[in-house]
Design a protein around this nucleic acid. Structure first.
Length: 805
RNA sequence: GCGGGAGUUGCCAAGCCUGGUCAAAGGCGCAGGGCUUAGGACCCUGUCUCUUAGGGGUUCGUGGGUUCAAAUCCCACUUCCCGCACCA
């Protein structure tokens, strides 16, 4: 064991103890009586987690004995009409902490492990109890004891209290009894279900209704379990206690259950019984496990209110990414109780004040980031274990002053302290989402407990896990690839990118080799492309140049925003894929014009792109960077910034329009299946442009009603003529509404836009390469217009009419 | 039970936070074409549906609602997944 690290753990745990945050108490665990050890899932046959429930024991007085019965519903004490025993069971008379109890043999055994002193003093057959009477605690009513076959000696105490109004088992058993044993007829007749819970759904005897609903045959009917569950959950959440329940009358059961429990136990009318609910659980040694109460267990008192408040305060100030997970942290802090922080077997650091115990490893690993700082001094041999004193840690971590530190030169202590001051607090802790309910929350709790406020952590980032082809990676499934091998085969960068691209923070990253290959090809072609580029800009920027530069600006701002939010998948996707489609369009345009001067534009674009790629794929980015002609390192250049000057709204509109016209042409060709010989395009008249802008303003102001817009247009003399063409208004509103908000805004801001000029200058080359024909363009009111099919009049702004022949 | 997450077009999977560019990215599969002696790899095109003019219809688990407009916001329902303590 690393003794120097142990010193750190000892300091941590001592510090918490001094602050009274570590307490001793009792705690139930699954337990193997043979090994004398707690058992958890991996200690059991079949890997079952021992799962137990707390039952309330209600103590009935029987002669000078106590008959305890176990129940999950202590409130039904008020509705008890009788007790059930199994006549075939021989019960034990035992002394329990001074009281004399009657319970089944199995129960007596269980009690021994639950911190009770048991002394057997005799036996009594179940049949001997039949017909006798017991007294109900609190109410002091006298009730008879009846036989029932559903009572099992291994469950609870082996004796059951009967609440026929609200427990289907009890209701049914009473009914059975009336049929089967005339012997009790007298006593039976006097028994009436006592109704104590009111619900909307049921009448006075819900158990009867439920038994009828489930068509229960007798008390051994397996459907009774389901009936019980059904009724219980309805009464627990929706039930109100009736007047016959003393101080609890009128309360909701879910609200007062704990109060009733404490009311009983406080007066020694009740007790607690812990019982395995998935029994039998067997230890790997073969022994049957029990529930044991460990009485001297050490806990971190995460239930402490002041501690929780501090942690909440810290959390509120922290940055938590992704945002959605924050509420989960708050929930966990609220829900945490005492947590066992020591165990009796295994590896670890011994509790300094109680060497029987070992600090539990999850508890000791929450502030070790602080140890990182001294680790380098320790590893360099500058400090030895025996000098890692409380004074030393108090000084370097808490700044308590170094005068008392013995055995370490003051300059070293000061150096460590100054490094600690430099690095702490933890700026960002990244871990898996499975650690949210434990490690990450403890990380916050223990930091706020030990360190002064200025050293509380600043950020937590939570990620999912990495899956392989959709499955959890595990050695047993054989679907793991050793990291070294993967890097050798595919390279570090493609693997990094494949993981990043496959999932956003919280999601599980589904890693597969196919995507690694895809990414690798992508990087190789990027390298090849960039290698050919020269930083020589064209003499004059053309429309598409200004456009792609505008697009680059939005790409930079998108990527930056994504990274700020730790949305790396989104960022990488933008760099590698989304922006690609813009580049495709750019290349198409430039090539259609048969240009040979755009290498410099691409060079500029890719320079920014590679700079953004660099944090994701550092190796290939350096390589490409060099190919782009840079002599410095990309990792040392600054992040590209958005230049507002480079954004040209006109260029954005132009390219959008060109795309939409070519799309329209393709569409027409697809539907008509004609081979084009000539394309004529007609742009809208100036009058329509005016109307368009009037409509655009209305829509942007939130007015989308056709009638209202029309009225306003007519009211204005400049646009009044539009009333002859209501279809135009209708369609224009639709056009505008189907445009993205950004384009609408751009159009609103740039009123002057010459569609005809754009088409004449830019569309012709594009149409020739795409469709192999020439384009002729007119404005719809031009004299000498060629318009054999009368298409021109349908032209709208940004939606020119098209004639294909 | 408590808490969290998810259900998208043949499959996987984005989009949802910030409603309109969404018949909806990308990948796989499939179909056609190119390259190749052939196969693989690679490249191009297509891939809800109807349509001989840029259009229409139906779709994002189900049912409602809000809105001029809903995969996206709200409500209910439903199905599936994950975590719940002495174990890292």
């Amino acid at each position: 064991m690393e003794t120097r690290y142990q010193k750190f753990i000892e300091w941590q745990i001592n510090t918490l103890k001094e602050k009274n945050l570590i307490i001793q108490g009792s705690h139930p665990v699954g337990w193997c009586p043979k090994d004398q050890n707690p058992v958890s899932q991996h200690d059991t046959l079949g890997d079952v987690e021992p799962d137990f429930t707390e039952y309330i024991l209600i103590k009935f007085q029987f002669e000078d004995f106590i008959i305890p019965t176990a129940t999950l519903r202590p409130e039904t004490l008020f509705g008890v009409t009788n007790l059930w025993v199994n006549p075939g069971t021989v019960y034990k008379k035992i002394k329990v902490n001074g009281e004399k109890w009657i319970v089944s043999a199995e129960c007596a055994k269980k009690l021994e492990f639950l911190d009770k002193k048991i002394e057997e003093i005799g036996e009594i057959a179940g049949s001997e109890l039949l017909g006798k009477e017991a007294k109900v605690p609190k109410t002091n009513r006298t009730i008879p004891i009846f036989p029932a076959t559903f009572v099992k000696s291994q469950t609870g105490t082996g004796i059951v209290m009967s609440v026929p109004a609200h427990a289907p088992f009890d209701y049914q058993a009473l009914k059975d009894l009336a049929h089967r044993t005339p012997y009790f007829a007298d006593k039976l007749r006097s028994i009436q279900p006592i109704s104590i819970i009111k619900t909307e759904e049921f009448g006075d005897v819900p158990a009867k209704e439920v038994c009828e609903k489930f068509k229960i045959r007798d008390q051994d009917d397996p459907k009774l379990e389901e009936a019980t569950k059904d009724l219980y959950s309805k009464e627990f959440y929706g039930g109100i206690l009736k007047e016959n329940t003393e101080q609890f009358a009128g309360k909701k059961i879910s609200d007062v259950k704990d109060d009733i429990k404490n009311w009983l136990i406080g007066a020694r009318d009740g007790d607690v019984l812990l019982e395995l609910n998935n029994a039998p659980v067997r230890c790997r040694c073969g022994a049957e496990c029990v529930v044991k109460i460990l009485t001297n267990q050490w806990f971190l008192n995460y239930g402490d209110k002041a501690w929780k408040e501090k942690a909440t305060k810290c959390l509120d100030r922290m940055n938590v990414l992704p945002q959605e997970i924050r509420s989960e942290f708050n929930y966990v802090i609220g829900w945490l109780r005492e947590r066992a922080c020591a165990r009796q077997h295994g590896l670890g650091t011994k509790l300094p004040w109680d060497k029987e115990w070992i600090v539990e490893s999850l508890s000791d690993s929450v502030i070790y980031m602080a140890y990182y700082i001294i680790a380098k001094f320790v590893n360099a041999g500058k400090i030895s274990a025996e000098n890692l004193s409380k004074e030393f840690f108090d000084d370097v971590f808490l700044g308590k002053g170094g005068s008392k530190v013995v055995g370490i030169p003051k300059n070293i202590v000061d150096e460590i302290r100054s490094e600690f001051s430099y690095f702490y607090p933890v700026d960002s802790r990244h871990s898996g989402r499975d650690l949210v309910p434990n490690h990450l929350t403890f990380f916050v709790l223990n930091h706020v407990a030990i360190f002064p406020e200025e050293n509380w952590p600043r950020e937590i980032v939570v990620n999912g896990s990495v899956l392989m082809d959709g499955k959890k990676m595990s050695k047993s499934m054989g679907n793991i690839i050793p990291l070294r091998q993967a890097i050798r085969n595919y390279g570090a960068d493609p693997i990094r990118l494949a993981i990043i691209i496959s999932a956003e923070l919280l999601q599980d990253a589904d890693f597969n080799l196919e995507s690694v290959n895809g990414i690798k090809n992508k990087l190789v072609s990027l390298l090849e492309e960039c290698s050919k580029l020269k930083p020589v800009k064209p003499a004059k920027l053309q429309a598409e140049d200004r456009w792609i530069e505008s697009k680059l600006q939005s790409a930079i701002s998108n990527v930056s925003a994504s990274i700020e939010k730790m949305r790396l998948r989104e960022a990488l996707h933008e760099i590698l894929f989304s922006f690609e489609s813009d580049l495709q369009w750019y290349l198409k345009r430039a090539r259609a014009k048969k240009r040979d001067d755009y290498s410099g534009v691409l060079h500029e674009i890719n320079t920014a792109r590679i700079a953004m790629l660099s944090p994701f794929a550092p190796h290939i980015a350096e390589e490409v960077w060099e190919k782009l002609g840079n002599s410095d390192l990309v990792s040392q250049t600054s992040w590209p910034s958005v230049s507002a000057d480079a954004i040209d709204p006109n260029a954005i509109q132009s390219e959008e329009l060109l795309k939409s016209i070519t799309d329209d042409i393709s569409n027409i060709l697809k539907v008509t299946k004609i081979t084009p010989k000539k394309i004529t395009i007609y742009t809208a008249d100036a009058f329509k442009v005016k109307a368009y802008h009037a409509i655009l303003e209305k829509v942007m102001a939130g007015e989308t009603n056709m009638g209202t817009i029309m009225k306003d247009l007519i009211a204005n003399s400049e646009t009044a003529d539009i009333k002859k063409n209501p279809e135009f208004v209708q369609k224009t509103i639709k056009d505008i509404l189907s445009e993205p908000a950004e384009i609408r805004k751009t159009r609103l801001e740039t009123k002057k836009f010459d569609e005809k000029l754009l088409i004449a200058n830019e569309l012709i080359s594009l149409a020739r390469t795409d469709f192999g024909v020439d384009v002729q363009v007119f404005s719809e009111m031009d004299s000498g217009i060629y318009d054999p099919k009368g298409k021109a009049k349908t032209a709208r702004p940004f939606k020119p009419a098209i004639l294909i022949e």
